[in-house]
């Protein structure tokens, strides 16, 4: 009996060792294969003459703050940490004006309410990128649904392929309805 327990214990130890090694190899290979090389991205022609001249995504992106979705880079953090210093203009005197103003979208059904932070958006964009074309400036004046967003309208103009993808529900729907309870009726 003791022998069998010992055997099982040994088996578990060996199993965990194998699992850890496999995981370690997996993680190591991820560091290289997570950002597919251009020749393997199914877009670039591996036979083309440009491939040895263009920067590889892993070289540029693996050093930036990681994210768990999309292109796996937390761009807001990359900007705030100073990992990247993107230019805000090329020929005019365009200046980004950071606006620290949150807008709460309450009509979100069963999902949590959406807290839209102007700050992170205005660090990348200027007002006219969204206003008055995609969104009216007056809060509540633009009516849209998740269906529209999934179809690439409104927030979906950027969130999807370029900004973090729409599978990240809770990053936007991050305020529980209970957080702002309806004011209690006067006694």
């Amino acid at each position: 009996m003791k022998q069998s327990i010992a055997k099982q214990f040994l088996g578990v130890c060996v199993g965990l060792c194998i699992a850890q090694t496999t995981f370690a190899i997996d993680t190591d290979s991820n560091a290289n294969s997570f950002w597919l090389p251009l020749a393997q991205d199914e877009l670039h022609d591996p036979a083309g003459p440009a491939l040895n001249q263009l920067q590889s995504p892993s070289e540029a992106l693996s050093v930036l703050p990681r994210d768990g979705a999309g292109d796996q880079v937390n761009w807001v953090k990359a900007l705030n940490n100073g990992n990247i210093k993107p230019r805000i203009n090329i020929r005019s005197n365009t200046q980004t004006e950071v606006l620290d103003l949150d807008v709460l979208l309450r009509n979100t059904g069963e999902m949590g309410m959406v807290n839209f932070p102007h700050k992170q958006h205005t660090e990348w964009l200027i007002c006219s990128n969204c206003h008055e074309g995609i969104f009216k400036s007056k809060a509540g004046a633009t009516k849209f649904s998740m269906y529209d967003i999934l179809n690439g309208e409104y927030c979906g103009r950027c969130h999807g392929a370029v900004a973090f993808p729409l599978t990240e529900c809770n990053r936007c729907h991050n305020v529980p309805h209970t957080a702002i309870a309806a004011p209690a009726k006067a006694n």
Binding site: A60, D71, P86, R87, I88, I90, R91, T94, T96, W124
Partner: peptide, 21 residues
């Protein structure tokens, strides 16, 4: 997009240069 956004903020192409989003 990734290559360009490291070097330029969105508004450079999508406002100054005029690429529609």
């Amino acid at each position: 997009h990734w290559f360009h956004r490291i070097r330029y903020k969105c508004n450079v192409c999508h406002s100054e240069i005029g690429f529609k989003m």
